[in-house]
Design a protein around this nucleic acid. Structure first.
Lengths: 211, 211
DNA sequence: CAGCCCCCTGTACTTCGGTACAGTTACCCT
DNA sequence: AGGGTAACTGTACCGAAGTACAGGGGGCTG
């Protein structure tokens, strides 16, 4: 893979300091401009204007610049917007104000043919998709309780109420140490790393990923 | 990113010539083996045995080797299997017999934090997801967001996804310290004591308790 | 009986979350 | 010009969370 030539496209056409720092040789233009630089860039970074649909913006850009790989930069990133970006065949999606090192990393991945897609988005994508695509029946919403012992279920429920270990201990009439034991078992059995994930699963906002 | 240490895991434990060619220093083991090599590898390549569910295979591997990034190698790749792989938190999916240069490219992308996921799969993911996401808006009761600044809303949403401060920092391109600042503001404005309560509120399972 | 699972407890340790104190920069408004 | 607010960063501290190591007792089953 050759050195990529970066071009930033935004409403004002300005080149933010962080971008410049990430890619000193990068060029920049406004949305409505043609490409003044020679040779033509190989990678476009598109700073999304407020309130304009991604698909729209990208369609315009493609009309002017052809089918170059595009990475979307968002001032206020959220998963739905990211989704829309990938629907419009963007190759990456990240925060406008990401640090230079981060931007370079994204560029690296995209340059190699990968997609840059945040962890959170990935989990949502997979969640949603597996429900549709899976041949196997959908697990019932309280399947989390299946693998847990009665005591473990108690603490899992308490966690979902937002209780601390100390409170749970008091409520169950056992020591904090024992609560930690149960919590540890719950984490392991549900395949998650901390109590927050447990709370989300028990509240029905997450699927457990048994490890 | 440092040089990755590759380890190939397969039924027989053999190291295919192409793999060896792609990564001369790679090690290889059988599915049931522990990790004999020192230092421990940083990237696992998993050749899928015929007819065994990916989730299963990966769960076993994680039990033995912990949560190292895994790339799935399939003798007969298809989209459904790829989907299952990403459901099981694989970081990449490709043909067992891909050429060395291709393997190195995948490794590069994954090593940089990206995902290797074919174009065809991506379009299916996005199609399927946008259909579901349109039906069930994750968060429309934005009452919690009212008092929060844009940045604070961002971190609140990230918290509800279960992200740690470090992850949020990385995602937003700011330091962990600043994330803590925003988290603190969110806690104060929502009148709760910890991030778990924030997650429950943002997920729609709790009412905020304005101080 | 031995082996397994569940429940319980203790000490010690590391990591993470949250707060306190102390600043900088930028923008907006009066 | 001054005040307010949002965003950002640093150092430092404390307590909560989670893990590792090391046990106790009870019940069930092959």
């Amino acid at each position: 893979m050759k050195q990529a030539r970066h071009c930033f496209i935004s409403e004002s056409g300005e080149l933010l300091a962080r971008w410049q720092e990430a890619f000193p040789k990068a060029s920049s233009i406004r949305f409505d401009q043609g490409m003044p630089v020679q040779p033509a860039p190989t990678l476009l970074w598109v700073r999304l204007p407020q309130g304009r649909p991604v698909a729209n913006v990208l369609a315009d850009i493609r009309r002017i610049h052809g089918n170059l790989p595009c990475i979307i930069l968002s001032d206020l990133p959220d998963d739905d917007q990211a989704l829309a970006s990938f629907s419009a065949a963007a190759r990456g999606y990240c925060n406008t104000h990401a640090v230079p090192a981060f931007l370079r990393q994204v560029a690296e991945v995209v340059g190699q043919g990968g997609l840059w897609i945040g962890e959170s988005l990935m989990s949502r994508l997979v969640d949603a998709t597996s429900r549709i695509e899976a041949k196997e029946p959908i697990e019932s919403s309280d399947s989390w309780a299946a693998a847990l012992t009665p005591r473990e279920q108690e603490v899992a429920r308490a966690i979902a109420e937002g209780a601390s270990n100390k409170e749970i201990a008091r409520g169950m009439g056992i020591t904090e140490r024992t609560v930690k034991l149960h919590v540890g078992s719950v984490l392991e059995k549900l395949g998650v790393r901390d109590r927050l994930q447990v709370a989300l699963i028990v509240s029905g906002h997450r699927q457990s990923q048994p490890a």
